[in-house]
Design a protein around this nucleic acid. Structure first.
Length: 426
DNA sequence: TCTGGGGTCCTAGGACCC
DNA sequence: TCTGGGGTCCTAGGACCC
């Protein structure tokens, strides 16, 4: 992989930036976006970071700071973020022959065409145009390997023009080892205990030692920090192998009936996800657990798996299997905090094997039923019609969600009208 | 009765990512 | 009172085989 040049384009404070696009009054103010259930902070504006609101902080713990400084708070609005992400990624395709959409707010670009000398200038051009076209500010890191490009992007965040190219020893020495892509909490602690504190230290670590202590991935990281590219651009999105729907409950759940309701809803949602991706699942796993943060009361977590007779995306089949798995692991007298449904052995619909009953998959009566079902839910709102035991019993907390500006006509922003956005929020 | 190497497949759990 | 959700890959160990 000689002569490769990677750019990592990283949207700044992405969810907050999305909210700002549609409410410019948020500019210059501290803003945070919350996880599902309004549980914790998962995106912060620079102003919010400066106030000392940590990433992942539980909302209740930073309430005082929020009140004191008038921080604006937003529930997660994935319809909006997903749509904005699509716009950014489509814009990036203008700048490189190959783009790897790495996450909702990051992409790797092959910019070998710009050449080493022109790379930084090209980065600044990309940044300016993405901002003009989508309203989203980005940082860009450029280097010979993906790991170094990531590291460079981290430095670019603090630089005036938002672009940093070709990190050298000084830049590596400024980067804590735990901030290196691929080094998580456990490995960071282990490395620090061994006297390896920075990316520069890690770059000089012995390869065999890294392999032994951190596995294949760790050795690869050491090589990539040294400029040897081990990771290529992955432009084809990998085929999904599993899909999960899970939620924490706002209040602890003790009754089997309530868990059955939740699991039925999750199973129905997971099945709908399959159908949207034209996939079928070969099996179902259900898991439940108590509150791992609770200081009193017994802890319990378990999971059970059920095979599906033949690969399917049929809500009835999947719900039935999921409920049977739930019966198996449910223990009375416990306060459950979370449950989830995981579908695995996913295959594309058209690759479904033939069965005794004729065509594979869901092409028969059940398949048509599901299609009609999805169509009605799409038109009239998710959850209007449900399958069997899926009754609405509980809801996500989303006190402060912004409108679906980009994906629903009725939520289009009104010019010169307040619209009462983000009711009940600071 | 004891002693071996080598291979595959599966699963649970760890570690990482956003 | 209140602590996200959704993924992937790797490894170690057990079962089983020749």
């Amino acid at each position: 992989m000689k002569g490769r040049l990677f750019a990592l384009v990283d949207c700044n404070n992405f969810y907050v930036s999305c909210e700002r696009v549609f409410d410019p009054a948020l500019e210059g103010r501290p803003v945070v976006a919350l996880s599902n259930n309004d549980g914790c902070v998962i995106a912060r504006s620079e102003e919010a970071k400066a106030l000392g609101i940590p990433m992942g902080a539980p909302l209740f713990r930073v309430r005082p700071l929020i009140r004191e400084h008038g921080v604006r708070v937003y529930s997660s609005n994935y319809a909006l973020y997903g749509d904005m992400s699509g716009r950014v990624m489509a814009s990036l395709a203008e700048f490189a022959p190959d783009v790897e959409v790495y996450s909702i707010d990051e992409a790797f670009l092959d910019i070998a065409g710009a050449g080493r000398r022109g790379a930084a200038r090209y980065g600044r051009e990309i940044r300016a145009k993405i901002h003009r076209w989508t309203g989203i500010p980005v940082s860009i890191g450029i280097a010979e390997t993906k790991t170094l490009a990531k590291l460079a992007a981290g430095i670019a965040k603090g630089s005036p023009d938002g672009v940093f190219a070709f990190p050298r020893a000084v830049a590596l020495a400024r980067t804590e080892v735990g901030d290196v892509w691929g080094i998580g909490r456990r490995h960071a602690a282990m490395l620090k205990a061994s006297g390896i504190l920075t990316a520069l230290d890690l770059r000089s670590a012995a390869l065999g030692w890294a392999r032994k202590r951190m596995g294949l991935g760790g050795a690869r990281t050491v090589l990539e920090l040294g400029g040897t590219a081990c990771l290529d651009l992955e432009t084809q999105p990998a085929e999904k192998k599993t899909t999960t729907v899970s939620r924490s409950f706002a209040h602890p759940v003790e009754e089997l009936d309530a868990l059955r309701d939740a699991v039925s809803v999750f199973a129905a949602r997971a099945a709908a996800k399959l159908r949207r991706g034209r996939l079928l699942a070969g099996g179902v796993t259900v898991f439940i657990h108590t509150n791992r943060f609770a200081e009193s009361g017994p802890q319990y977590h378990d999971a059970a798996t059920r095979p599906l007779a033949s690969p399917t995306s049929h809500t009835g089949d999947i719900t039935g299997a999921a409920l049977s798995a739930l019966e198996r692991i449910f223990r009375p007298g416990l306060r459950y905090k979370k449950a989830g449904v995981l579908l695995f052995e996913l295959i594309a619909e058209e690759r479904a094997p033939l069965t005794l009953f004729g065509a594979g998959g869901d092409s028969g009566r059940g398949g048509r039923l599901m299609k009609a079902f999805d169509e009605i839910n799409r038109k009239f709102g998710r959850g209007l019609i449900r399958y069997g035991s899926a009754r609405p019993g509980w809801r996500m907390n989303q006190a402060c969600r912004s409108p679906h500006y980009t994906t629903r006509w009725e939520d289009l922003p009104r010019v010169a009208a307040d619209g009462g956005r983000a009711r009940g929020c600071s």
